[in-house]
Nucleic acid binder design. Structure first.
Length: 740
DNA sequence: AAATCCGCGTTTTTT
DNA sequence: ACGCGGATTT
């Protein structure tokens, strides 16, 4: 890669023109010396090495405020990049509280690039500003199709593997010459390459970008169109990048472009919290910053304000086991506090039950539920925890995981909106062409697809063509015409507010009626989800009146549930260790501290197992350092996994914590009994038995014909008077037993 | 074309 | 244990 002329930075000399003002003293109030230096650093590159809990966010927000207050930058001349949308939102809020200034670009790399591409993408040819953003699921959907169409065995060549390989290549900003995972798997590399090329072409045809493309194409525009690049680079007098240890090659190059004109780049991060190497993040970005950007000022924030002494000591003890790490002297003035509690549990249910008992005890001691979080390595662990919390009636919120936007009903409606915004979006078209069912089956779709491919037009245009429909017989032909007409009618919604578009889609497709027709026990839940989506859309319209449908879709594509987490609600937060980064809680539980889980074997079987292990250790470190007052570490003796129970060994990371910091406890089966027993007959829900006469809010009176499943999955088949039978999830149905 | 059944892979982490 | 896709019915 040809280096950019960083020190060419045309503007190092230019800064003098701006008239500087005195900063209001309160901006430096309560800061320690290095923090103050970071906030008031003037021109030139700045590296802030910020240990866990060292007040990093505070420094960044104050620095932005300081830049504005001293007249060094106008609001639109500041670009701040964060790792999640949630972090961006938080930062925006905090800056707003300090300065009362709006219009600063504070966003993730992905959101920023999407925004730039909406304006600039047409210089690349092929895409229009209405491009769709495909998530991993959409991407795999398309790949699956391509693999099949090319006649490869979908068993041997999995869409997910090919997709991961393509993504990995894009994240490293290199072409895929040479090796790939294909080789490692003993598969045909050639096939991977062929599929990738088909994928790249198909994405262009569908006017779609995947997550990686957002970064990569923005980079390509900056590389190939210096004029466009300079527009942005000149504008952003000050650039700040948070969590810099987790940036990948492409993000690094983007950063160079964006900060290259003025040379005022401040990055902030902690190599000990680098946990995204698997996604192409490269710690060298932060380790090499000084050389890279020449004459960089380096400021270390080493005083931890967050955690009580014992927690900090424990975390330090663990992270010290990483070799090849710059030793860092993180210290705290806080009292030692209580010991860390290690809980040994029987199995995953005991573990979950034990955690909920501890939470209840804490609650009785006056701890707020929103001050408690439970972290785990892998998403499947969420299940047992969720169940225990439900049974104990402890309100909780899942951050990340099975996402709202993955639900079928949500994806359907979003796909309609996407197809309206971007008629070339074949993935969206395939999804909705027969939803609600209108008699367009697999065969008809194949025909249509063939015709579309032969004529080089999108699926949707094929549906609109009488000539294409002529190749299809029977009911499907008329249905296709109806579908084409429907989309035509909805076409004017392209520039409509999101809520209006959504409501028109729901109305025009009678989506509600279709859901009801499915006769699923999840009906109520799905209806609630649709309702929630409508709320999201109107909220969006109110917050961003200029965004309309396009903007909404972009938000939906980029906003994960991690971002949706709202504080201040009285709920325990459940999330993966990765999602925990950047957050803090008075009380933290880290669950599943076992070998084969943390460290996770898949992290160790890469080409460099030691690097994998060290990243797992950093994950442990991130988890521990989120805790302010109390830290619980739990593990189970056996765990159900893949439907099989295995014996577990406590994680080696537990042994790395000095024993004098630990307080051991063993959970007892009775504890679990208490939790799971307590909810056998939850308050407000009647015990229902076969043969009972029951009453349901919507369907009225009926008789229970059959009961299946148990716990949250318990279902009842109820014959409603005059309505026929329905299967209901007891959990939601709220059936009342009628006395005869 | 839609409904039902079966077998397989799946679960590392996310924008 | 679960969900998906493919195969097999209706």
């Amino acid at each position: 890669m040809a280096p950019l002329d960083w020190m060419d930075a045309k503007a190092v000399q230019e800064g003098a023109e701006t008239e500087l003002r005195e900063a209001p003293p309160e901006l430096c109030e309560g800061l320690n010396e290095p923090q103050r230096q970071a906030v008031t650093h003037g021109e030139g590159p700045l590296l802030i090495l910020a240990g866990a809990g060292s007040g990093k966010t505070r420094v960044i927000t104050r620095r932005i405020a300081w830049l504005l207050a001293t007249g060094r930058a106008k609001p639109w001349e500041v670009l701040a990049i964060t790792f999640t949308n949630k972090a961006a939102g938080e930062m925006r809020e905090r800056v707003l509280a300090l300065t009362d200034v709006k219009g600063i670009w504070i966003s993730t790399f992905h959101a920023m690039c999407a925004r730039i591409l909406r304006r600039e993408i047409e210089v690349l040819g092929g895409w229009t500003r209405d491009f769709s953003i495909y998530d991993t699921y959409d991407r795999n959907q398309l790949l699956k199709r391509l693999i099949k169409d090319a006649g490869y065995d979908p068993q041997r060549f999995r869409a997910a593997s090919v997709g991961a390989w393509i993504s990995d290549g894009k994240n490293r900003a290199r072409t895929h010459e040479g090796s790939g995972p294909a080789e490692a798997q003993g598969l045909d590399d050639e096939v991977f390459r062929v599929v990738r090329d088909k994928y790249l072409a198909a994405m262009r045809e569908a006017n779609a970008l995947d997550f990686d493309d957002l970064l990569l194409l923005a980079l390509r525009i900056f590389d190939e169109h210096p004029g466009v690049r300079d527009n942005y680079a000149q504008r952003f007098r000050y650039v700040l990048v948070d969590e810099y240890q987790d940036t990948n090659r492409v993000q690094y190059l983007l950063t160079r472009h964006l900060a290259g004109w003025h040379g005022n780049l401040a990055v902030c991060g902690d190599p000990d919290q680098s946990i995204y190497a698997w996604r192409g993040a490269d710690v060298r970005n932060i380790l090499d910053f000084e050389e890279d950007f020449g004459k960089a000022t380096v400021i270390k924030l080493e005083q931890n304000y967050r955690s009580v002494g014992n927690i900090l000591k424990g975390a330090q003890a663990v992270i010290r086991h990483n070799v090849g790490r710059k030793e860092k002297d993180l210290w705290s003035e806080r009292e030692d506090g209580p010991l860390l509690t290690v809980l040994e549990c029987g199995d995953e249910n005991d573990e979950a039950a034990e955690i909920s008992l501890q939470v209840q005890a804490l609650r009785e001691q006056g701890v707020n539920l929103d001050g408690i979080a439970v972290f785990y390595r892998v998403n499947f662990m969420q299940r047992a925890l969720e169940r225990a919390f439900r049974l104990s009636q402890i309100p909780y919120q899942i951050v990340g995981g099975i996402e709202f936007y993955q639900r079928r009903e949500i994806r359907d409606l979003i796909a309609y909106l996407q197809l309206i915004a971007n008629p070339r979006d074949d993935v969206a078209c395939r999804r909705v062409i027969n939803v609600p069912a209108r008699g367009i089956g697999e065969r008809s779709l194949e025909r249509l697809n063939d015709w579309a491919a032969a004529h080089g037009v999108p699926l949707r245009d094929a549906a609109a063509s009488a000539e294409a429909r002529a190749t299809i017989r029977g009911r499907a032909r008329a249905s296709l015409e109806a579908f084409a007409q429907l989309m035509e009618e909805l076409g004017d919604l392209r520039d409509a507010p999101a809520a209006e578009a959504l409501d028109r889609v729901i109305l025009a497709t009678d989506y509600g009626g279709w859901l009801k027709n499915l006769g699923e026990p999840e009906l109520e839940m799905r209806e609630e989800n649709v309702e929630e989506l409508r709320t999201h859309a109107s909220t969006y319209d109110r917050a961003s009146p200029d965004g309309r449908l396009r903007g909404f879709l972009q938000d939906v594509a980029l906003v994960s549930d991690v971002d949706a987490y709202d504080e201040g609600t009285e709920r325990v937060a459940l999330m993966t260790l990765h999602a925990a980064k950047g957050l803090e809680f008075p009380v933290v539980f880290v669950a599943g501290l076992e070998e084969q889980l943390l460290p996770h074997p898949l992290a160790l079987d890469s080409d460099d197992p030691d690097a994998g292990l060290e990243e797992e250790r950093r994950l442990m470190y991130v988890g521990m350092t989120r805790a302010q007052e109390r830290l619980f570490l739990t593990h189970a003796r056996t765990r159900l996994h893949f439907g099989e129970t295995s014996y577990r060994t406590p994680s080696r990371f537990l042994d790395e914590i000095p024993a004098e910091l630990l307080d051991g406890m063993e959970s007892t089966p009775e504890d679990a009994e208490d939790v799971f027993g307590a909810f056998e007959n939850p308050e407000g829900v009647d015990e229902v038995r076969e043969g009972d006469r029951v009453y349901h809010e919507h369907f009225g009176r009926g008789r229970v014909e059959k009961l299946q499943g148990s716990g949250l999955n318990a279902r009842a088949t109820v014959a409603f008077d005059g309505l026929g039978s329905k299967v209901l999830l007891l959990q939601y149905a709220r059936l009342q037993v009628l006395d005869p």
